[in-house]
Design a protein around this nucleic acid. Structure first.
Length: 157
DNA sequence: GCCAACGTTGGC
DNA sequence: GCCAACGTTGGC
């Protein structure tokens, strides 16, 4: 039986790691997430091949810049054990890791950025978790929402 | 750079 | 277990 494809939105600050950076790599471990709900999505629900809206946060403007895909099963985030990392977690251990991640792989840039402002203005997207949970860096997206964002990117802003 | 939203920590 | 203090996210 084949798995049902799921859709996600993952935020990254483009000054730190942008869709251009992702496109230059084979895949990227999505490390540093330190929110339990976001972790649970990665650890428990993401499957290889799920599609991701790559969202630029803290940007001018912020918005969806591209598409990525989940490229690995979840595994413990290695930087949680690295005392020199800003993401080091002294309460975690390899025997009982607290933080898990997945690898993310570039699929494509959108023809243009679909801004947060446009997303807010589109009544088809009013239920997006992005809008309801503005601080969560990993959120689920419905197929309808995913398709709508891609459709918007094909049209002039 | 400001600050509102909101998740986490820790004293009690 | 409550909740005030604190820290972080992210739009503007």
């Amino acid at each position: 039986m084949r798995n049902i494809m799921q859709y996600w939105l993952m935020k990254s600050e483009p000054d730190v790691f942008s869709i251009d950076d992702l496109s230059a790599r084979t895949s990227e471990p999505w490390d540093g997430v330190r929110n339990y709900e976001a972790r649970n999505f990665m650890r428990d629900q993401m499957k290889i091949g799920d599609l991701v809206l790559f969202y630029h946060s803290n940007a001018t403007p912020s918005g969806v810049a591209g598409v990525a895909e989940i490229a690995s099963a979840s595994y413990p985030d290695p930087v949680q054990f690295d005392a020199s990392s800003k993401y080091y977690d002294p309460k975690s251990s390899p025997e009982d890791p607290r933080w898990h991640l997945v690898d993310v792989r570039y699929v494509r840039h959108l023809p243009r950025l679909v801004s947060l402002q446009e997303i807010k203005a589109n009544s088809n997207l009013s239920e997006m978790a992005l809008l309801k949970r503005s601080r969560l860096s990993v959120t689920p997206v419905t197929k309808g929402e995913f398709d709508e964002i891609l459709r918007m990117a094909e049209e002039p802003a």
